[in-house]
Design a protein around this nucleic acid. Sequence first.
DNA 1: GCTCAATGGTTACAATTGAAACTATCGAAA
DNA 2: TTTCGATAGTTTCAATTGTAACCATTGAGC
Lengths: 164, 164
Amino acid sequence: MSASARASGNASDKLRLDRFVPYRLSVLSNLVSMSIAHAYEREFGLTIPEWRVLAVLARYPNLSAVEVAERTAMDKVAVSRAVQSLLAARRLVRTYDKGDRRRSVLRLSAAGRAVYTRVAPLALGYERKLLDALSASDRRTLDRLIGRLTERARLLDQMDGQDS
Amino acid sequence: MSASARASGNASDKLRLDRFVPYRLSVLSNLVSMSIAHAYEREFGLTIPEWRVLAVLARYPNLSAVEVAERTAMDKVAVSRAVQSLLAARRLVRTYDKGDRRRSVLRLSAAGRAVYTRVAPLALGYERKLLDALSASDRRTLDRLIGRLTERARLLDQMDGQDS
DNA sequence: GCTCAATGGTTACAATTGAAACTATCGAAA
DNA sequence: TTTCGATAGTTTCAATTGTAACCATTGAGC
């Protein structure tokens, strides 16, 4: 029996974890998220969900919680929790829609804006240091590939969810 | 004051979450992991950590728990838990190293191999469907980019951890 | 004006995870 | 041979997260 045959013996063993794209994506994403999460926590006492809410409200003030959820790929429970801690830290102001009293209207407080203007450069700095590993052309390609794959992953997820 | 200046007022507002690579990577990776996790759970009662342990032991039998951890990017606690549930399901056999009684020696049971040979094609099938969104050349590029970025992320993580 | 399904958001509870402490064993040095 | 720091692996406890149930409000249909 040859060494390669002994390794496992049939077609299924074409799978090598260290070449499996979903695994590699997960490892990469975890590394990146961890780095960032530690920096935010250490410097501003911000979690990633809180940071996402902050970032989206900095650019689009007066969103409701569900609108924030849509723009951050978070579910509404996660948004609710992030909003609560940001409110407690007085980094957010919440009012309610006059015409529909279910809907909240969220925007950054002065303190929230202050934190944001300090976190944002940190975030962009990290991104730049990460992408420095790539050529300009590779960066454009990466952008495109992430977009394509995300679109495809959504599609596959949908298909899979439906026929069950 | 121009519209773009009004949007926020200084350099920090170049940040848009939906163009921020760490965010986009996280969204993509979560989508992919979720799809796979649901399929594994539904069809085999396997979690992702369990699947990783299975996959690495299928290819490299008789590893210890720490060796499994190294090859799966999991920490030793996660490996310990995955090993326990796989043992409980009789998908793994554990012995101990004769020369060093701290080290476990892990390999798949017949049942474990049977599960593996059924899961592996599923995993590869998902990967193929995902990568079908890309040309062959883009797939090669993706491979390279993930490698570069992972390497760089590790480096940045290290640097960051040290000077604190 | 009611009723009722749908929507916005929160709460409660279980399951997962992470960090630190712990046990057991080992190997090197005195 | 005893001691002690390092390694393998597990346990424990707290924090995070996910799911489902829940409450309040709304708007559409009757």
